[in-house]
Design a binder for these strands. Structure first.
Lengths: 230, 230
DNA sequence: TTATCTTTTAACAATACTATAACAATACTA
DNA sequence: TAGTATTGTTATAGTATTGTTAAAAGATAA
């Protein structure tokens, strides 16, 4: 299923996490400071990084920033204290999830699996279903088509990729920058016009009433969110 | 933990499975042909479907196909013969697992548990929602919304960012300059009017009595403080 | 107490953001 | 290459959000 990297100065904890995820079919590698972590990330391809806030030398936030300059891997942070400042700081800096120490191992494993799924679901369609099914909407990966109330449409590349990106982050807000970088694979230069045009074309196909969309909802000032209620 | 649906024409077997999974804390419902199964699936929400290939009327594969047009529930199929054709057929049609009759009940239960675990994790990244929770106030990062006494509000960008900044410095005094530089990301030029307007709008949403605020407290001459007692 | 200063709030103005249509440019396909 | 499909761009209108102003309330200090 993949390999994760654990960066935490608590050696016992690293080994413990490794054992737990291996039981789920996930490999794990670990190191005990930010610097080593960054060089490991350059050597090998990982699915996810677990990062402790409190470490000697470079702390978790600094490490996070460094990693984020080159990678969009999902990152889960351990906040040592249950303080909101760390949570907010971590989220702003680009962590995808956080967990407060001490934690229950089952919860950690569940979050790891969920994060990995979220980020790799579409690159490696695991198993059999090559489609995403929602109430009243079916996204078919084999044909790059959608089956919606308005009929079946083969979607052009940008439209399909945008829809998949949104649906893959179901319930989460995605910024226009994220959409752009994921779909266009180019640097985002503050121009949303084409994204908005694509969204408009998508909605015309999948939404019963594009003016009050059921699936692709707009989050003003930020981006869009694929409705998790469907 | 949830409820499963068994579709099998063998009535005794249905009852037996039901007893076995109830011992694991899982409810079970059953019916004896594909048609009834499909209508049951429309009525109630199940965690998993067990489906027999050999049934009078609509057979298992046909039922499976029907189910898959509207649902991505995990489906475990019983193949009556140990022939690979059935297995392959079932898996291709969208089953998530199969078991050959006759089977050992323990194995069935183990597979059911495993499938439910996989599926519920897959489908509930919202279990991992990122939020800050206070007494009577919940800040939800996924929706950029607050849930307060006055109701749930999706906050506009400046309001949300301001609230998060305050809550992230819970118990600490933050100056208007800090707020401005964090939220507006511009140089602060001695103009608080808009910050005060934002605070006023925020309080109207999250405070029961905006005139004597519980969460966002005024520190005259300096700025504000998010109450640490909440 | 008064004088001064800050904050609150409402009302309004200005701005920023979004949706969509229409068209232009580009990419793809036969 | 022509023809078509897709994407990018521009313009416009509508709306939500933010900024500004002013009046009133509250705090602070002499």
């Amino acid at each position: 299923m993949g390999e994760i990297l654990i960066i935490d100065d608590d050696r016992e904890l690293c080994a413990l996490i490794k054992r737990s995820v291996i039981a789920e079919g996930i490999e794990a590698d670990y190191c005990h400071n930010g610097k080593d972590g960054i060089s490991k990330l350059k050597e090998k391809e990982y699915q996810l990084v677990i990062l402790d806030v409190m470490m000697p030398g470079m702390d978790g936030f600094e490490t996070l920033e460094q990693i984020r300059t080159t990678s969009s891997l999902p990152i889960l942070m351990f906040t040592s204290k249950d303080d909101n400042a760390s949570k907010v700081h971590g989220l702003r800096a680009g962590a995808d999830d956080y967990l407060t120490k001490p934690f229950v191992m089952d919860e950690l494993v569940a979050r790891i699996l969920s994060l990995i799924r979220r980020y790799t679901r579409f690159n490696q369609p695991e198993g059999l279903t090559q489609q995403l099914v929602f109430d009243g909407l079916k996204i078919d990966f084999d044909n790059r088509s959608v089956d919606a109330v308005n009929g079946i449409f083969e979607l052009p590349p940008k439209e399909f990729d945008t829809l998949v990106f949104l649906a893959g982050h179901q319930g989460k807000i995605v910024t226009k920058q994220q959409i752009y970088e994921s779909v266009w694979k180019e640097e985002y230069v503050y121009d949303d016009s084409n994204i908005m045009a694509i969204i408009s074309r998508l909605r015309k196909k999948i939404e019963e009433n594009p003016a009050s969309p059921k699936y692709i909802q707009t989050v003003k000032g930020i981006g869009y969110r694929f409705n998790k209620e469907v």
